[in-house]
Design a binder for these strands. Structure first.
Lengths: 211, 211, 211, 211
DNA sequence: AATGAATGAGCCTTCATTCAT
DNA sequence: TATGAATGAAGGCTCATTCAT
């Protein structure tokens, strides 16, 4: 009774956060399997191994779960992390992501879910806000990346030119997500090569070091 | 009252086809407004100005309507019609399509619906088949188009190179669809320019006519 | 197939009205048995011998049923009909009503339900409106009745005096309703006599016909 | 930390009684606000500033709380305390009570709650018992009071006559409770005057003290 | 004694589908 | 063909109650 000092036992808040995460993960699984609209609370609660009622201790409604999931997805976006990377690496990363998805890795942002959420953003304002925010961030980081590379290469380009390049690259990548959802046997070799040429078009070759 | 010999009344098959179309158009309207999963039979029947019961004479289930709609959407795809067009015209066409969608034109294939159907194809085999078919067709026609242009330009390229180009262009266009759904105020000027540069990359400049 | 002229088959609107009434009657039964809050849609639909879903074709929500029931109850109030009656008859009527309730007559406005609705009117604005309206009507008709009798008797009384009498009589009657709910073996003989003396107090004895 | 010998700490029984009271008071607050059926254990526990679980140490079920509350309400009834008071004072007391309720005083027995409990007594035997007991007590004390006054005035009246008077006065007062629940802007001046005349009718004028 | 997380039965409501007319 | 009333199986959500700590 006295040495109940359970070291590293999670605080109540931490526990709550963990539960939320558990629910979101379960929701993700269900939504990917059944669709954003067909995934039911009952199935989510089964997947999360808790009672339906408990879910409502952590989320006030089903929609709140969807939003929570968006936030998660957004955080996991590859946008933020590309600063400083070479085009090769960025390409490799995206291909790696697609490959994992195609291989059935459940821990990777799900293209179909991204599509459904994008579609939903047309109708649901709350979701729209999240999508827009995520988009802005992604675009900004892409533009920053392209600008950096451009500067490093000694190139002088207008802001608009950068925007055009970002649009080309960004849409291509978005298109890959759409493709990944539709084409389970996407030919990744072709994808990689086409992305290489796009990168070549969009990113200036670095200045030769020597003469 | 009995001998109402309707002269030139459409054959029963034609009539059935017309009814089906009426239902599909109504379904389209509803699905765009409410989403592929939220559009209810009740609303569709209202929109089509017929009773819910009647719908089941032409479609055996709600899902059958969704499939019927896919078939329609597929036929309306812009893939088939690009043969012989110049890159400029193709670009203009796609931009025109996007512009109309952004302006709210209800007669244009709906990006959110395309996204939802693509997502749904992950789960529903029947839908998947349609999507795959449409994709194949679109890809084939894109490849044919690129090959034609290449040949006309006197270029000699491998089939794989063409595939790579088709992937670049195709994904870019798919990405535009995704963007259109998410970004109601997409900057079309940027889009057009970035598509121009992509076209330039993917399509060889035609041989000079004369010396 | 030809002589389908079902004479006196109810029109669609009439049918709807009948269904509504069927639901309201069932609701009444359930609410009296289980209470205004415990009576469930499931039980109502059983009692009305229809599916739960069907109820929602006629009432948009459970609360709408409660309100509908109020309207019914209000219409059945004895207020409106007392004009022209002698005190004796009014007394007899009210006693008759109580007796029938105590005897278990299910077609008589239910005191417990009246109490619950009165209580609910403290919290639910829509219900409050109905209650207030019914109250106003009842009070007005009581005042008119008392004024009439007073005039007939050749009495000259201020409006306020009438209000005071109406309050005395009205509260007494309301109190009877409360009593009826609480005391299943209410002594009706006592009730009648006490009501008689109240009437005597509140209503002037008519002028002697002769010298 | 261990030998916390709380001197003069209340006996466990006393403590239990205090806790019960705390719960009942909280329940009362909640039930008045939300209704007898809508007031949830969760809200009660919040209001009482204790955990939901703890409530079940003192009451075995929600219904037990309702019953406990009845007992409390009954004890607080004004019935017992009127012995020896003059009609004026009794009238004043009741009017005072109504005025406080209408003014929003939360410490006064709540008319809506009384109504709901009366209604509930039709269905719940345990509650019915309490209500009946309270009623009996109230009636008895009212009869005793009227008998006293009658005797003091030198009047000789049958027991039945007293019962009739008690019925008139009792129902009137009950009716006031109903009115108070329904009519937030009850005209207390009228109420008071009508109660005065009722008292005059029911209570004999005291004998002149001197010649 | 006390907490509050967890349970699960049950409620209101929706909607694809059927069927008598 | 056509109608639209009717069905009933879920689905989202609440809340009295329990129980590990």
């Amino acid at each position: 009774m006295n040495n109940k000092i359970k070291r590293s036992s999670p605080s109540s808040e931490q526990r709550a956060e963990l539960q939320k995460l558990r629910i979101l993960k379960a929701a993700r699984t269900c939504f990917i399997q059944d669709g954003l609209h067909a995934g039911t609370i009952a199935r989510i609660s089964e997947t999360a191994q808790m009672s339906p009622g408990l879910i409502y201790r952590y989320f006030s409604s089903r929609e709140e779960i969807v939003l929570g999931l968006m936030r998660l997805q957004v955080k996991a976006g590859f946008g933020p992390g590309i600063a400083g990377l070479t085009p090769k690496v960025v390409t490799a990363r995206i291909c790696e992501y697609l490959r994992r998805w195609l291989a059935g890795d459940p821990d990777v942002p799900s293209p179909p879910l991204i599509l459904e959420m994008s579609a939903e953003s047309t109708r649901n304002e709350a979701i729209a806000k999240h999508v827009v925010d995520a988009d802005k961030e992604a675009r900004a980081s892409l533009i920053a990346w392209l600008t950096d590379l451009s500067t490093q290469a000694g190139e002088t380009v207008s802001e608009k030119e950068i925007q055009i390049r970002a649009m080309a690259l960004g849409c291509f990548i978005d298109g890959l997500v759409l493709r990944a959802a539709r084409e389970p046997d996407l030919d990744m070799e072709i994808v990689e090569k086409s992305m290489d040429s796009l990168m070549a078009m969009v990113v200036p070759s670095p200045p030769r070091k020597a003469t």
